[in-house]
Nucleic acid binder design. Sequence first.
DNA 1: ATCCTATCCTGTAGGC
DNA 2: TGCCTACAGGATAGGA
Length: 316
Amino acid sequence: MPELPEVETLRRLLEAHVIGRTIRAVRLSGQKLREPVSPQLSRRLKGRRFLGARRHGKYLLLDLDGGRTLVSHLGMSGRWLFQARPPGEDMPHVHARFHFMDGSQLWFQDTRRFGLLHLAPTSRLSQDRHLVDLGPDPVSNPLSGIALSLMAKSSRLSVKAFLLDQKRVAGIGNIYASEILHRAGVDPRVRAGRLNAGLWEAIAREIGFVLLEAIERSGTTFDMYRTLWNEPGGYGDQLRVYDRSGAPCRRCGTAIRRIVQGARSTFFCPGCQTAGGPGTRKRVPSPAPSRDLARPGAVRRSSPPRRGQILKNSQG
DNA sequence: ATCCTATCCTGTAGGC
DNA sequence: TGCCTACAGGATAGGA
């Protein structure tokens, strides 16, 4: 579940260690990812140099000379791994190996193959079909509460589902959505269109806070995610609700609950996350039926933005 | 138009 | 011990 902080961590590391290198060869596994990787990729990348690393939401954008950009997404289990001196042993599920002139290698590994590797013209990147519908990137262009509340105005989605929708805000996934709503004190089941401006202000603040704090710690390794050096991220012990069902809330002591929304887990504190935000106790009916699947003790493993501008200022 | 569900995929946890 | 099933979720196609 790499989300914005994990991708930004990789972007920074790639910028520091891979940008400037020239590709000698690219070897592809031939396996289909989210969509087939073009067999032309190898030919088109040969001899090209990486010029820069950008990011929008969860998409990593690697610009090359020759006017093309490598658009990548990590899906559920994707990894970018760099070795100055490639190890002797092999690794499973490596779908692209970039061999650089100096002998170093960059690998794209993706066990579950929900990731994406695709080459697009740099000049028309914002029109690329994978990127064109993305909402604003909340780290490059911090969102105001006003902007969020305008976007949510007539939405019947739960606020959790709203935050997960990449067309509205790009980069928030299942882990950080729960964390953001916990910090904002907002019940994840409340419909987005019913939240008042003050709560959107709190959510906007926590989006920025949580994502930046997670970036500082190189992201969250819950399961698959690794940095460029194959190391886990350090934000895992900062998580307040995600995967903590049954454990006491660190703010009020109430047992954290797990529910399912849109076939995805949501973790929240029934004590201090309410429909009216911090300090209110009123319980509000859920917008959609949500089953309570918390099993105590059982720890499961493992101004509104405009379109067309999304790729500007995406340096992160 | 908006929202919801099923689908893709693999490794792993849990049940028997 | 080992087989089998269920589950995890990002994005999206297609249905309601």
